[in-house]
Structure formats: C-alpha cells, structure tokens
Amino acid sequence: AVPPNGNETFNRRYYSYDFGDVHYVVLDTMLYESNHEDNHDTHHPDLYDVQVQWLRKDLAANTKKWTVVLMHRDPFQYAFDRAGASRAVGFDDEGVLFMPIFDEFNVDLVLSAHLHSYRNRGHVRNFERDASGPLYILTGIAGDARRPKWKEHPLDVYVAPDREKNNYMTMTVMPNQLIVKAFLPDGTQLDESVIQK
C-alpha cells in the first residue's frame, strides 16, 4: 500500500511521500531486472526516461525542509577482480543518471543498497567530495546474502569493519539536523552522520 503518485504505467514502482518535515522519494532502479515481473514480459526500456521526468517534477514541487531519496541500486560502482570478471571503480548507470538531479534539487540524503555492505561516502556533488552535496550511504546488510569483498572507493569515508555482520540504521529528524546512525544487531554503534541546515 504505497502512494500511487508515480506513473500509471509503472504503478507504485516509484513514488514519494511526506512525513513530518521530510520529503521521501523512492526510486525504481531495477530496469535491468524487470524483464520477467509477474511471469510476463513487462520490460519497459523507457522506465528511467519516464522516471527522470517525474522525479524532476516531484522535486520541483517539494516544500519540505529535508529531502531523502531511497533507491535499491547503489549509484557508486565498486571495483572487483575475480575469476573471469573485473570492474573499475566509478559510478554506475543509475549514479550517472540520478546524481546530477540530486545535486540540482539539493537532496540531503541518499540511501541505497544492493551491494550488501555498509559504506558511508560522505557528501558528494558533481561526482566529487563536496560538503554542499547530498550525503550518500550504502545501508549495509541484513539477512544471509554475502558478496565478494568490493575494493575501496576513493569516496568511502567509513566502511563497516566486518562485512559478515548485519547492521541496522536509524534516522532522527530535528528542526535543524538530520542524524543518521548505523548499529550492529547488539546495539554497538558503527557510524554516525549529522546533516545541518
């Protein structure tokens, strides 16, 4: 039961909502995995094009103090080397597409997933370290899926020391602060970031 304010063709696959003084935007970053949804050929190659138009409209109409984006695929690309495959460090397709829009509309916080690792990349604007840019956090791992160890990204500020341990996060909204913390299941704090505005 999520808001139907995205797009009729992509019903409830992306949407936004307000809670308190925060505007939340949930993006659908699963373009390449959407081929066989509901056992039908529902692949829509225009998902990102249509979504970008909607996102710009949505963010332009936002009147809340804070803006938080949630997206499954991580916009950062991590390097790895393993048998038969390797990849360079940088930004993936979703990062190249969406990060300039986050910059343009002064998004405060971007939470992503997919890589099963907790990493805080700090504030990034124009693909570089910049205190005026959004804070990017790869939210980590919960469950039984473990991935090969990604190499460090030049923009990593903090990486969870033990990738085999699950973690959870909290966000506290204050009048002039957004406080994000990460914890191990036993309550041990891993990381904390404070955004001031």
Rank of each mutant, 00 (worst) to 15 (best):
P148K: 03
Q189W: 02
K57Q: 15
H72K: 09
Y32F: 11
F19R: 14
L109S: 01
R56V: 07
D103H: 10
H44N: 14
P75N: 05
P134L: 09
R73D: 11
M169N: 15
I137P: 00
E192C: 10
N11S: 14
V194W: 04
D49V: 13
R87L: 10
K151R: 13
N126K: 13
D144E: 10
T42W: 10
G140K: 03
V96M: 06
K181V: 03
V50F: 04
R121D: 03
Y17H: 11
R56W: 07
A131S: 14
R13E: 15
T188G: 08
L70P: 05
S193M: 07
I195C: 07
H72Y: 11
F127I: 03
D74Q: 12
P134V: 07
H36I: 03
Y158T: 13
T63E: 12
D162I: 04
P100E: 05
D58S: 11
H44R: 15
V2C: 02
Q189D: 04
D130K: 02
V26L: 09
A88T: 12
A61W: 02
H44Q: 15
W54Q: 09
V26K: 12
Y158N: 02
F10T: 00
Q51A: 08
R12K: 15
N39P: 00
A182Y: 02
D18A: 12
R125V: 00
E192Y: 05
G122A: 04
L190S: 04
R129L: 06
E94L: 07
S112Q: 03
A85Q: 10
E104N: 04
V69E: 01
D41G: 12
S34E: 13
D81C: 06
M71S: 13
Y15W: 15
G122P: 00
A113W: 00
V2K: 12
R129M: 01
D156K: 05
